[in-house]
Structures are given as structure tokens and as C-alpha cells.
Design a binder for these strands. Structure first.
Length: 324
DNA sequence: TGCAGTGTTGCTTC
DNA sequence: CGAAGCAACACTGC
């Protein structure tokens, strides 16, 4: 998933659905000696502690920091979830029907969204008691579907949470009110010899940008992904700053990007994948008007190319994106 | 059959 | 020190 707009979409959904919910039980596929991650529910010892620290408490609200979901509880504990590549949280009624590795299924077999094949890899289930309902009467669940099992789930003390090792290294939030061009430029310039694409993906520089939105922001600002940070002119950097904000806001407005596994809290797709100009558009004609056809100004048709930068698949228009 | 894949970390090499 | 490359995590889809 899950870059800033997708995580934000999920957090917005959580705040609509689970505020005030009491956590009455937790189930996880990871409760097996096979998994050994540290301070993560994948460690069976920690999973036991995880349950002890959260069961019985109520959810106050949810917040996003970089690509992390923070679920604040009323007992000074906070659940931290990083969905990594394929994780996504969904809210609905689930039942434990059999004893295979993925036993939890939506109670309603006719709920198309929750039964979407991308949503059926249920690894973690929170059983919730909603405000105003009698204990045990309503079976409502918050579940984590995570095909590749990369997601990280842990619990940390709410006090001083932003100084915890999980969050302290993160750079500024690009959509925060106080974020401005000066901060953007100062942060980016911490990697003067780095490639701009790699720098945008660095969570300690700016939080929340991933592979999709970095490609889209560079496409929009006409900058080649392999440009070295120190070579990019100030005027171009300003365009990049604006582009980053535009693509992230668009991502949120279109409900996130569901080109792959991401689904919202109801298990439904977002639509930003329908608006890509660069990401996974290899071989397509660039949609910038000047790149669409040959013309008298000697401009060529632009084709989207795919290269690898910093080990990540990268897409750009060879015509209009300038290498600095 | 093979490879690529929305993320992150840690290790190695230069 | 910093940048880059690679493996690991685990599984699906083209």
C-alpha cells in the first residue's frame, strides 16, 4: 500500500468507524513459534504481552505519522500498525469458521468488497464491542488483511510516543500546516549527492512519500528521477515542492491508490491508479500536451520509460523530465 | 519458469 | 561519513 494518501484514507475510515470501541479480544495467525520478529506481534511472547496491554481498553481515535497508523487507547497505550506492502485494515463482521491458517471470513458472504480476493488474507483480528451495545451481542471486527505478511503491528506507550524508536527518526509531514518550501528545501538538501527520487523516498527526509507518489511528483514537476539534489535549480525545486503536495492531496481525494492490494476500511478500492501519468505507464505516450505529438517546435513524442533507481522501479517521461 | 512488486531494515562494499 | 547494492521478510500475478 500504502503510502501517505492510502494510510490517511484508512485513518479517516478508522475515525468514522471505531471511535469508542472496546477491544474485547485479539486473534493472530502469528501466534506460532515460527515467527520471531522483535517487539512485534509476530513474536509469540510479545503477542501475549500485546494482548494484555490492549484488551479491555477503548479506542479514542486514530492518527497517521508517515506511513504508520496510530490507534490511541484510553489506557495510555497506542497500537502502531505499519502496513508495509500489502496490508490493509478493514472493519466489518467476521466469523471464525474453521481451523485453517486463514480461518476468519466475513460473516456476510454477499458483501462483495470484503470478499474481494485481495481482502481474504486475514492475519490479525480485533474483536470489538461498539459503544451502546450489550457485551457479546454484536460481533464487529477490525481485521488486517496482509497477503505478504510484511505488516508490522506493535503497541507502544502513548506518553512520548513521537520519541519512540518507531517514530523518532521520521522527517516532517508534508501535509502539515507548518510545512513550507524552506523546510522542504532544507530537508532535501540533507542529501546533496543523492538522487532526487531516492531522497524523496527517504522517510527521514520527508515522511510518507513512496514509489507511486514520488514518480508522479517528479513527472509533474518535469524533473528526471536521477537528477542529483545539489544540481536542481531552486525554481525547479519549488515546482517539485508544489507537485508533491498536489499528488498527495489528489491521492487522498481519490480515496488512495488500489493498483495493487490497497483497499479502504470497507474493503473498497480507491481510484488514484486511474490517474497515473508515470507510475507503471511504461511504453505509454506521455500525457503532457507537449509530449503527445511531434510539432513545429521540434518537440518529440514523449514515451514513459522504466528504469531502476535505488533498487526501486522508476517511471518517467524521457522527453519532458530534465536531468540536472 | 521467472520475475517484479505500494516498504523497511540491516549489512556490506566502495 | 555517505551512497549504493543486495538480501531478507513471504506470496501472488503476469
Amino acid at each position: 500500500m500504502p503510502e501517505l494518501p492510502e494510510v490517511q484514507t484508512t485513518v479517516n475510515g478508522l475515525n468514522k468507524k471505531v471511535k469508542g470501541a472496546k477491544i474485547i479480544d485479539v486473534w493472530s495467525i502469528y501466534n506460532s513459534p515460527y515467527y520471531k520478529s522483535k517487539e512485534n506481534i509476530k513474536d509469540p511472547k510479545f503477542f501475549k504481552e500485546f494482548k494484555e496491554r490492549i484488551i479491555g481498553s477503548k479506542i479514542i481515535n486514530a492518527e497517521r505519522r508517515a506511513k504508520n497508523i496510530l490507534i490511541y487507547l484510553d489506557n495510555k497505550e497506542t497500537i502502531l500498525i505499519h502496513m508495509k506492502m500489502t496490508g490493509h485494515l478493514m472493519f466489518g463482521e467476521y466469523t471464525n469458521t474453521n481451523k485453517t491458517n486463514d480461518p476468519w471470513k466475513p460473516t456476510d458472504p454477499n458483501n462483495e468488497a470484503l470478499n474481494d480476493p485481495f481482502n481474504t488474507h486475514i492475519r490479525l483480528v480485533f474483536s470489538l464491542e461498539m459503544p451502546g451495545t450489550k457485551k457479546g451481542v454484536e460481533k464487529v471486527n477490525l481485521v488486517l488483511s496482509d497477503t505478504r505478511k510484511f505488516a508490522k503491528v506493535t503497541v507502544i506507550k502513548t506518553d512520548g510516543i513521537f520519541h519512540s524508536p518507531d517514530l523518532s527518526h521520521l522527517g516532517p509531514e508534508p501535509l502539515a500546516k507548518e510545512f513550507n518550501f524552506k523546510i522542504f528545501k532544507d530537508q532535501i538538501n540533507k542529501k546533496p549527492n543523492g538522487k532526487i527520487k531516492t531522497t524523496l523516498l527517504d522517510q527521514t527526509i520527508i515522511a510518507g512519500i513512496g514509489n507511486i507518489y514520488s514518480d508522479e511528483a517528479l513527472w509533474l514537476s518535469n524533473i528526471h528521477p536521477e537528477s542529483l539534489v545539489k544540481n536542481i535549480l531552486d525554481t525547479e525545486l519549488k515546482k517539485l515542492f508544489n507537485s508533491v503536495l498536489i499528488v498527495l492531496k489528489n491521492g487522498i481525494d481519490f480515496g488512495g491508490d488500489s493498483m495493487s492490494d490497497y483497499r479502504n476500511i470497507d474493503g473498497e478500492r480507491g481510484s488514484f491508479q486511474e490517474r497515473h501519468n508515470a507510475y507503471r505507464k511504461t511504453g505509454h505516450i506521455c500525457s503532457k500536451p507537449a509530449c503527445k505529438k511531434e510539432n513545429k517546435l521540434n518537440l518529440k513524442i514523449g514515451i514513459i520509460k522504466r528504469i531502476v533507481v535505488g533498487g526501486r522501479s522508476t517511471h518517467y517521461c524521457e522527453n519532458h523530465q530534465t536531468k540536472y
